[in-house]
Design a protein around this nucleic acid. Structure first.
Lengths: 177, 177
DNA sequence: CCTTTTCTGTAATGATCGCTAAAAATATCA
DNA sequence: TGATATTTTTAGCGATCATTACAGAAAAGG
């Protein structure tokens, strides 16, 4: 997972994977089927563990708390010393050659799913009068998630935890300035 | 340029490049030296032409006009029918294998340069009383550029021109809401 | 027209890509 | 212990990677 996360799908070779896991190539293929299927498993694992901060955050009682926790969780994950910079959903395969097209599309779909999850949480907040009735949940979610992906790009450029926190704070200023 | 832009540095093979240009491999090497040097030329070309909207925007008389034009230019470029989705500075090599590490760093450095250019423009605006004296140009620039990179990620996921415009409008709401 | 230079095309370099057949070693269980 | 599964290792698959040596064609200059 760390290799795919750090170097992207295309940038990670089978040799690097087997060497990191400590097994031979046929063992990897017996266990996972192919590089793409291994990445599939890695993606599930990523969503289950380091990226679980997103669904967790959305369970907060108020939209404001949820978004705050969302950004805090993202920053904590990104700034974790043992983690590569950024988010696997972005770094994994933002642009890719024809061979990795399927992975690219899958990551794009997963990003969209994350955005819709946030959108539904904000819609609930509007319904609960937690957000003003005229608030547009779809636009808000699109905006906030865009900042989140942008922070992933910034992390890839070496942004510090403090810089990311400032960005998140400014982004939330749109709603609760 | 379009190939590197669409498929990233690693995702673009020499065969794809020579076939697109319509020359043989030795001619490409005689003309550009190597794949990496060709990418260097491509990057210069990209900054000179489709990405010139950034320096152009910063020449607007007010910070607000500058940022508006910055986002408008970015959206126009991204939504251009004949252009790949997103920004070469982001899609080119956000994460990459060891062989493309130099390119990755160069793109990160170029992104940082763009951010600093915006920062200096905002600092000027503060000095000119165009922005409130207590405004933090560095944080503002970091925030706005983060949204810009995020829009590049969204574009890679198929975001439309209208969606990007809404995001930009919300992002500017932080300053001129 | 002939020589010299410049360019283009063919072909192949070693390396690495993802992937797999078959032998060797190990574990399982009667 | 001995026969049977299961796993690991070795070795190599064809394809493609970026890169280049070399031969032939075109262009330039006298």
């Amino acid at each position: 997972m760390l290799l795919f996360w750090r170097h992207g799908y295309e940038g990670t070779s089978l040799a690097a994977l087997t060497s990191a896991i400590g097994i031979n190539t046929p063992s990897l293929y017996a266990a996972f089927g192919s590089k793409e299927q291994l990445f599939q498993k890695v993606l599930e694992r990523y969503l289950r563990n380091p990226a679980c901060y997103l669904p967790n955050a959305l369970q907060e009682p108020t939209a404001r708390k949820a978004v705050e926790k969302l950004f805090a969780g993202a920053i904590r994950m990104v700034a974790h010393v043992r983690h590569p910079d950024g988010c696997l959903l972005v770094q994994g395969a933002l642009a890719a050659g024809p061979a990795a097209e399927a992975v690219r599309r899958q990551l794009a779909a997963t990003r969209r799913r994350a955005q819709r999850a946030l959108q539904r949480r904000l819609e609930r907040a509007v319904a609960e009068r937690d957000l003003p009735r005229r608030a547009n949940a779809e636009r808000l979610a699109g905006y906030l998630i865009t900042v989140l992906w942008g922070m992933s790009v910034q992390a890839a450029g070496g942004a510090t935890r403090g810089e990311l926190a400032e960005i998140a704070s400014m982004a939330m200023g749109v709603l609760w300035g």
